[in-house]
Design a protein around this nucleic acid. Structure first.
Length: 362
DNA sequence: CAGGCGTGGGC
DNA sequence: TGCCCAAGCCT
């Protein structure tokens, strides 16, 4: 039995061997049945890793299934329009990933003959693929003993060794590189993440069921939740916007602008800062922004949305407008009339999805 | 390189 | 409710 010194700050060779064995054995018995674990091809693994960046497993699963149904091969993805790819990504967030995904598919077809590269350095060079994702693809799809460091690995290592806030990424990468075995590197890396996701959780970790509890200094000291030390986040900012749902002939007015700094490929409902009467603000927005007269009809229930540390309260107004062309004051802005039932074919952000849900409840 | 980037869920 | 995220990447 290993005795743990709470002040220990490194992994011995013996610890590494016992950890590898215990973790792999535990993983074989406890691994969740996830869609990407049915696959061993680089395309399927790569797609899952891009989607899983900063995104929960339960959220990713339906998107992953739909994506693979639409694009069974990387050639199909490469041949698709970016708008279709973005539409299938709508609601998943971090839309830069979708653009990188599409671009990578085209690079693989154009520069690698449709075969996903096997060299970890070439994988790392692909857009949207950083050190973590390259390591995950190389180990899981290609069986190459490349380390990974993600939030789970950091948390586990920080607890095992009671690493403080001053621990630099290089230290985690060095530890991960020493841990990953030549045999079953992909399963080992997934076992680390699985342990972090289901046992060694940020709060209320299940130390009593942990297969590597004997090697954990934080468990021995009784303070696992104190690790890792996380930096404080910035203050939240609250804002209120009026959102205009303009209806004409059963269609809704959507807009997008290449001049927008953010989400410029996505279609959204027109919005403006809200300070007073939302019907008046909606009318002013439509008149000044699109040169038409707006008739407010219904104030829809308020929608709360949060983007990073911005908490947005949206006050939607449903109304109609007079006949005639829409002429955006902003030359970089496009507008389009879209049937609510077809909105899912368009790339939209999360706010538009919530508006559509609110309309469906009317 | 610190900070920006989306979202839905857990507590 | 308000806060903290969750299999990071890019500039």
């Amino acid at each position: 039995m290993t005795t743990t010194d709470p002040s220990r700050a490194d992994l011995s060779e013996r610890s590494i061997r016992t950890i590898r064995n215990a973790l792999l054995e535990w993983y074989d018995r406890n691994r969740r049945d996830l869609p990407w674990r049915k696959r061993d091809d680089a395309y399927g693994i790569w797609l899952s890793e891009i989607m899983l960046q900063q995104t929960r497993v339960e959220t990713v699963i339906p998107y992953y299934e739909r994506f693979l149904a639409a694009y069974p091969t990387i050639e199909g993805l490469a041949a698709a329009d970016l708008d279709d790819v973005l539409a299938r990504w709508s609601g998943l967030g971090y839309y830069r990933r979708a653009r990188a995904l599409h671009e990578t598919a085209r690079i693989v077809v154009r520069e690698h003959g449709g075969r996903f590269p096997r060299d970890p350095q070439e994988v790392l060079a692909l857009p949207g693929v950083g050190r973590y994702t390259a390591g995950a693809i190389s180990s899981i799809a290609h069986g190459i003993p490349e380390p990974i460091v993600d939030g789970n690995v950091i948390r586990i290592l920080a607890r095992w060794l009671r690493l403080g806030a001053d621990t630099k990424p290089a230290r985690y990468w060095d530890l991960a590189a020493r841990l990953v075995p030549d045999d079953r590197p992909g399963d080992f890396n997934q076992a680390m993440m699985e342990l972090g996701a289901t046992v060694c959780t940020p709060r209320s970790p299940s130390c009593e069921t942990c297969p590597v509890r004997g090697d954990c200094a934080a468990a021995a000291a009784g303070d696992p939740e104190a690790y890792p030390v996380v930096a404080k986040r910035g203050e939240n900012v609250a804002e209120t916007s009026t959102l205009v749902v303009v209806r004409r002939n059963g269609r809704l007015l959507l807009t997008r602008s290449q001049a927008r700094p953010l989400m410029k490929d996505l279609w959204e409902f027109p919005t403006c800062p809200s300070e007073g009467n939302r019907s008046d603000e909606a009318s002013r927005l439509v008149r000044k922004g699109y040169g038409r007269r707006f008739e407010p009809r219904t104030a829809l229930p308020e929608i709360r949305h949060s983007i990073m540390n911005r908490r947005i309260l949206l006050r939607p107004v449903l109304g109609v407008i007079d006949r005639g062309p829409i002429t955006p004051a902003d030359p970089a802005e496009e507008t389009r009339w879209i049937l609510p039932s077809r909105l899912e074919d368009y790339p939209t952000g999360g706010i538009a999805k919530k508006v559509v849900r609110a309309l469906a409840r009317l």
